[in-house]
Design a protein around this nucleic acid. Structure first.
Lengths: 133, 133
DNA sequence: CCTTGACCTTCCAGCCACTGGAAGGATTAG
DNA sequence: CTAATCCTTCCAGTGGCTGGAAGGTCAAGG
């Protein structure tokens, strides 16, 4: 299987697959006589694993750890669970941050006339910090 | 006022102030005889404006636009309001994404024993996509 | 056989918004 | 005089790709 087929099946782009190989996240692919990368089902499955891990918020270093656990038959599930709980808490912190920003923005928009005139509660808030901005 | 004092008062770092000058987000500072940058109150206020705008989620290009509106006495407040509403929607989309990730993670953690053994619902979910991961 | 188009390869540059650090000059306090 | 703390410029690195150039390979159609 060539790289674009592996990409289609895994959900990663060809570029991303090459990049993951370069940084050692996936093993270097076998090469056909013409130099093209060749992939097995097992490798595509690892790529799917990585695509899913990325999609739930893990960074590449965490993906590396998770993949290590996945490959290790002597792993302890508490290690995976800990990574997941930490990431979950991390996401919650980021959500809280974004919510706080959004609340501030909504408050500013609520005080702004938003018309053709120059008077603007938003710009005043940003200038003075008055509206908790 | 030297750069570190301007940094302290504005909430930006000295590095960031130099960077903003370099990309033309703030006007080049006046220089003292020794070559040190000198800042006025008005400039520090613009930096505070930028720091606040950054803190509510605007990227540097948007900050540039907001600062342009702030400086323009013939502005129309609807332009600022539009930027704010778009950013708010943008934040909401990101919040929704993060919530979805977190929900998936929580579900995975809930099914995982998290003990000393190798059996692990999390790794299985990531491998198979079974748990909607 | 030739061309066209879709693959594939490598390598380099760029994105965003800084941050760290090196190398060197200026200022201040003791 | 020295030490500490400023300031300057410049270069490199971060994460996780993405785009593009320059060139090799392959399958189908004329």
């Amino acid at each position: 299987m060539n790289i674009s087929e592996a990409a289609r099946r895994s959900g990663l782009s060809s570029k991303t697959i090459r990049y993951y190989e370069e940084i050692g996240l996936v093993a270097p692919a076998a090469r056909a006589d013409n130099g093209y990368r060749q992939y097995s089902k097992a490798q595509v499955e690892e790529m799917q694993f990585l695509a899913r891990a990325r999609n739930v918020g893990f960074d590449l270093e965490e993906c590396r750890q998770l993949l290590g656990l996945h490959r290790d038959h002597h792993r302890q599930s508490r290690h995976a669970r800990q990574l997941v709980l930490e990431k979950s808490a991390d996401l919650q912190r980021r959500i809280d941050e974004l919510e706080a920003m959004k609340t501030t923005l909504q408050a500013m928009a609520g005080r702004c006339r938003g018309d053709e005139g120059p008077e603007c509660a938003i710009l005043d808030d940003l200038a003075t910090g008055g509206g908790k901005a």
